[in-house]
Amino acid sequence: MKWRKASSTPTSTLTWISWFCSLPGHEYFCEVSEDFIEDDFNLTGLNIMVPFWKEAMEMVLDVEPDEDTSKIPDVSIVEASAELLYGLVHQRYILTRAGLQSMVDKYESAAFGVCPRVYCVGCNVVPCGRSDLPGIDTVKLYCPNCNDIYGPPSSRFQGVDGAFFGTTFAHLFFQSYRELAPAPYWKPSSSAESSLSAGRSPDSVHSSSRRSGFVNPNPHGGQKRPEGHVYEPRVYGFKVSERAKSGPRMQWLRLRPQSPLELDTVDWRGRWIDEEEYDGIDEDEEEGDRQMEYFDPVRVFYKTFRSRK
């Protein structure tokens, strides 16, 4: 099948694709090149997912429809098909070199917004689907700093299918642009700076990380200096103890080790390598207030209790 442009009318310079990408709520889409859509190989398998395939293709590529297509009851059905077709092609296109390139341009202009998490300090996010099949979930935003996904801030994105971006794109994107991916370890550069880290503007963070030449020893890993600060709940200035019922339980979710070597202290099954039989009471090295532990009656009691056994 050949999708030939019917004599392009000079009055309508706006293509369907440009129009579609300019609609409110479609800011995350990039323009898929017509060459990509015209190559049938790129569309393998899509024709069984999209109703009114031929008419949808005509609409997306601005081809004048055949005379005998009047059997379609309502043009809005074709519009829905064209959107589905474009979305599914878009999911594939943004995994190609050209697609990744046009998405990185959008990323660097913060077209997808920033992470809502305070301690990610305005890290740019990318669109991400939770399923590759359409009709399951709407588009989400992936933050490379906290490796988590968020709902878009505006309700206008609630009509955008996550499958139009797919599950793979966000991660292939940061695999392809390593300099944009934050590294998995973080050391507070100085005590003064770490306590202020939430207040620094994103601009100053970017420029300082470039200046100091941050290098991850893993060449295949993220090469950007991460934002590693983790929120600590406090009441009247005192940390809420983990022993309280309402104490912190989720800090692990955002924690990074101080050095990349620490990542190797856990094996592929998720167990600590150097701890034969973990007895559950040893403090981990991340705890700052170690000396307090010696005054802990429960701990002392527990130790004597264990040694008597």
């Binding site: 490796n147 893993n218 692990w252 979710l253 990074r256 856990v266």
Partner: peptide, 26 residues
């Protein structure tokens, strides 16, 4: 790299859970 970080984070989590469960038993 991300899977490795997540395994490490979950090991930190499991360690805290172990710590809290011991305290609870006591």
């Amino acid at each position: 790299e991300i899977a490795k970080l997540q395994r490490w984070q979950e090991a930190i989590r499991d360690r805290q859970v172990g710590r809290l469960e011991v305290l609870e038993d006591l």
